[in-house]
Write a protein that binds this DNA or RNA. Structure first.
Lengths: 204, 204
DNA sequence: ATTTTTTAGTGATTTTTTTCACTTATTATA
DNA sequence: TATAATAAGTGAAAAAAATCACTAAAAAAT
């Protein structure tokens, strides 16, 4: 199920690009190539989701994107915040792609008042003490954690209590979250490890 | 197979921490909890890899880490470079965890000479024209791409021709690489999409 | 010394995921 | 108008992954 969701998210992103460039129809084969899977898998995913295409034409870009948007609520604009305004956190604050893709970073938090005062960004920044209040009052649904490892779990707890639905975790620790909350880890070291290990195994 | 590699990488990271804190033995159950899987899966992975533990004690931390290190070559120090010294790229340049975990960022590249001159870091930075030469002469095995989408494929091509084994891609495009090269995408927008979509599906 | 408890090891089973093989529909071409 | 080609749709098969159910070993407790 996770695999399907992941593929659908990639497809959705690709469709957004295709829509911009004016494409009307797209085949399962092209979609498969774009996201790195097979045409069979794409068609099977759509089949399960009860999404229909047109023989010899493929899927209509606009309506496909619309349908996926509805089914997975990817059409809804969602608010996010970043906790931890170190170098990575501040880089993400101004990451321009989020805005174009249905996500809006509307707040940043840091434990250092000093840092907050020095930061140059259009986005509102707050001391971490304001986290719970700002998250719930502004309807923030997603929390991005870029604090040091030792503070990460505590921040996650506060975010969840304040009502976020999911956490994107850049700290290299495994966060405990209730099972209705979605957590996704982006551990750069693990990513490099994976690449190195996979290279070793597959070219052995 | 990818799943196993991913789990092993996480386990390896966890073992490094445990080793530091002086733990001698660790059970499949604790490992499973630490990386978010089941004890069965951990034991099955080890069983396939012909890694043995001790009844009623678990696995010896030191020798387990050693064995995984050898089997997946995670014990070898590997050199990496970052191409694209925007905010994300420069944040990664100084990402302190890499050093402690067997990866060394030894060069950064950017197309803007201006940017290169202004950057404050201990790591050597070069104009992107020097990429091929520096990568091959310094034995860089991993390339981290943080350039804008439109430049990403070209950079990937140069990196691969210069001999990198794997690419960690932060740009939001699907890179074409030969199949013996490992590519891992870190697309932040997709990550947020996945979190949002999964929340919708699982709490439906 | 015996029993209980804990934890690994692994073949078998189950579940999930992917791929295949074939049908059907529609457009393009001869 | 007939034929060829293309691409979706989907049940069935295969492959992959995870889980279970059990055994065995060793330590701890009685």
């Amino acid at each position: 199920m996770n695999n399907t969701i992941e593929r659908i998210c990639k497809i959705y992103g690709y469709l957004a690009v295709q829509e911009q460039s004016g494409a009307d129809f797209i085949s399962s084969k092209e979609l498969a190539e774009a996201i790195g899977t097979t045409e069979y898998t794409v068609r099977k995913d759509f089949s399960v989701l009860d999404i229909k295409g047109y023989t010899r034409k493929g899927y209509e870009v606009k309506s496909l994107k619309e349908k996926l948007g509805v089914k997975f609520r990817l059409n809804k604009e969602r608010r996010a915040c970043i906790v931890g305004l170190g170098r990575l956190g501040t880089a993400l604050l101004d990451y321009e792609h989020f805005q174009n893709d249905g996500f809006e970073i509307i707040a940043g938090f840091d434990s250092s008042i000093n840092k907050i005062e020095r930061i140059q960004t259009k986005i509102d920044v707050f001391p971490v003490g304001a986290l719970a209040e700002v998250v719930s009052s502004r309807g923030i649904e997603l929390g991005i954690i870029t604090v040091p490892a030792k503070a990460a779990q505590e921040i996650a707890d506060v975010l969840i209590r304040a009502g976020v639905k999911g956490i994107l975790n850049f700290s290299p620790v495994k966060l405990n979250v209730p099972k209705d909350i979605v957590r996704l880890d982006m551990d750069f070291t693990n990513a490099l490890r994976f690449i190195a290990a996979k290279f070793v195994i597959q070219n052995k």
